[in-house]
C-alpha cells in the first residue's frame, strides 16, 4: 500500500512542495502576520492590548511625515529603476555585439552585483563626499576653491548619493538578466531586419525590444521592489529629513518606549502595501501593452 501511496501523483506533488512552501509559510507569512496583528494593537509583549484598533494606522497615515516619506521613497526608488533599466539594456545590447576582451569586461560588469550594497555606499562616500576624491581633484585643478562649491550629492534631500549606489548595483543586475535573455534570442533576427533595410533604431524597437521585454520587466520589477524597501543605504547616505519610509519605520522601532512599537509596525505594513500596489499596477500595465501588441502584430 505504502509503495502505491508514494506513487500517487498528488502525494508526490504535495511532499515535494511541502519543505519549501512550509518553510516559507512559517518564516515569511508568519512574520508578516505578526507585523500586521501588532499594527492593529495586539502586542502583549510590549503591554499593548488594544486589538483591533486602526488607531496606529491612522496616526501614521495621516501624518505629514509619512506622506513626505512616501513621496521621497517612491522618488528614490523610481529614478534609479528607470536609469538602471536604460543603462543596463544599453550595456547588454552593446555587449552582445562582437567585442574584444569579452570575458574581462564581463567580469567587471558583474563585479558590483556580487558585493553588498554597503560596499557601494563606502565607494560613493569616498568619491562623492564634499571632501571626497572628486572634490579634491576639482580643487587641485583650480575648479573649486572650497568643499562648499562642490555639489552636495550625499546627505541631501535630492538623494543623489542613494541613487548612485543603487545604480552601481543595478545596472549590472539589469545587464546580466537582459544578457541572458539576449543570448537566447540570438543575433539572427536583428541581422535579418537590418538586411531588409531597417535602421538600427527600428531594428531595436521592433525586433529586439519585444524579445527582451520580459527580461526588462522582470529586472526592473525586482529593482524597484528592492529600492523601495532598502534601509541601510538611505539611512547612511540620506538626509536627516526627509527620510525614507523604512528609515522612519526603524526610527520608530528604536524609540526606547516600547509601547510605541505598533507605530513602527503600521509603517512596515504601509510599506508592504504601497510596494505591492506599485508592482501590481506595473504588471497590469505590461500585460496590457503585451496584449495590445499581440492585437496589432
Amino acid at each position: 500500500m505504502s509503495r502505491n501511496f508514494f506513487r500517487d501523483r498528488r502525494v508526490v506533488i504535495f511532499l515535494g512542495l511541502a519543505p519549501a512552501v512550509g518553510t516559507l509559510l512559517f518564516l515569511f507569512v508568519g512574520p508578516l502576520l505578526v507585523a500586521l496583528v501588532q499594527s492593529l494593537g495586539h502586542a502583549p509583549i510590549y503591554r499593548v492590548h488594544r486589538f483591533p484598533t486602526l488607531e496606529f494606522h491612522r496616526q501614521v497615515l495621516f501624518s505629514t511625515r509619512f506622506r513626505i516619506a512616501a513621496v521621497v521613497t517612491l522618488y528614490y526608488a523610481l529614478v534609479p529603476t528607470f536609469l538602471a533599466t536604460l543603462l543596463g539594456v544599453a550595456l547588454a545590447v552593446t555587449f552582445s555585439r562582437r567585442v574584444r576582451g569579452k570575458r574581462f569586461l564581463s567580469f567587471f560588469f558583474r563585479l558590483p552585483l556580487v558585493v553588498p550594497y554597503l560596499v557601494g555606499a563606502a565607494m560613493v562616500v569616498a568619491l562623492f563626499a564634499n571632501g571626497g576624491l572628486i572634490a579634491r581633484l576639482l580643487y587641485a585643478a583650480g575648479l573649486i576653491e572650497s568643499t562648499g562649491q562642490f555639489p552636495r550629492i550625499l546627505f541631501s534631500a535630492g538623494g543623489w548619493g542613494i541613487m548612485l549606489v543603487y545604480l552601481f548595483k543595478q545596472v549590472p543586475f539589469t545587464f546580466i538578466i537582459v544578457t541572458a535573455v539576449l543570448s537566447g534570442v540570438g543575433p539572427e533576427y536583428e541581422e535579418a531586419a537590418r538586411t531588409l533595410g531597417a535602421s538600427r533604431m527600428q531594428a531595436f524597437r521592433f525586433v529586439l525590444l519585444p524579445r527582451i521585454m520580459p527580461g526588462v520587466v522582470t529586472s526592473s520589477l525586482l529593482v524597484f521592489a528592492f529600492n523601495f524597501q532598502s534601509y541601510e543605504i538611505p539611512y547612511l547616505l540620506g538626509a536627516t529629513f526627509p527620510a525614507t519610509l523604512p528609515v522612519e519605520a526603524l526610527r520608530r522601532f528604536n524609540v526606547p518606549d516600547l509601547t510605541r512599537r505598533p507605530e513602527a509596525m503600521a509603517y512596515v505594513v504601509a510599506i508592504t502595501v504601497i510596494s505591492g500596489i506599485v508592482l501590481f499596477a506595473y504588471l497590469r500595465l505590461y500585460r496590457r501593452w503585451e496584449r495590445s501588441r499581440g492585437g496589432v502584430g
Binding site: 512574520p31 534601509y231 509596525m265 512596515v268 510596494s275
Partner: peptide
C-alpha cells in the same frame, strides 16, 4: 519582492 524590513521586524 516583499519588503524585508516588514519580514524582519515581525
Amino acid at each position: 519582492i516583499v519588503p524585508q524590513i516588514a519580514v524582519g521586524m515581525g
